[in-house]
């Protein structure tokens, strides 16, 4: 078994995707009053699965595969939303809940990274810390 196994890499991908999603959700909140704006979002689980899949295709230099995929996966959320009189489809409650939820998940992932590092530290220090 390797010391630095896949766990930290997975957490890193998850954090990246959560931040990417946070950016989209933030822009939905910022455009809550823009006429004709349709909120965008992507399915985190799907994006994660896609990022985890071994990427056969070559990635552009200096660009991680997961982020490019997540951005491309962002879909306008037309279902479950009613357009306002200005054709804006942002539902303030939905947008804020998604924002808070995504932020919490990010925190959970960050904590998971902390735990993993703590385990490594414990092992590295002969169990004295």
């Amino acid at each position: 078994m390797k010391l630095f196994d896949a766990t930290l890499g997975k957490i890193e991908t998850a954090l990246d995707l959560r931040l990417e999603r946070q950016n989209l959700l933030t822009s939905n909140v910022a455009n809550a009053d823009t006429p004709g704006y349709v909120p965008r979002d992507f399915d985190f689980a799907k994006a994660m699965a896609e990022a985890e899949a071994p990427l056969a295709m070559a990635q552009p230099e200096g660009q991680s595969g997961s982020l490019a995929h997540a951005g491309a996966m962002a879909q306008p959320q037309l279902a479950n939303t009613q357009p306002g009189f200005d054709q804006n489809r942002v539902d303030a409650d939905q947008a804020m809940v998604a924002l808070a939820e995504n932020g919490l998940q990010y925190g959970a992932n960050a904590q998971a990274a902390n735990k993993k590092l703590a385990i490594l530290l414990y092992a590295a220090s002969d169990g004295t810390t």
Binding site: N23, N31, Y37, R40, M73, A74
Partner: peptide, 8 residues
């Protein structure tokens, strides 16, 4: 351009 975050 359609899939990225938008400012206002």
């Amino acid at each position: 351009a359609g899939a990225q975050p938008m400012g206002v």
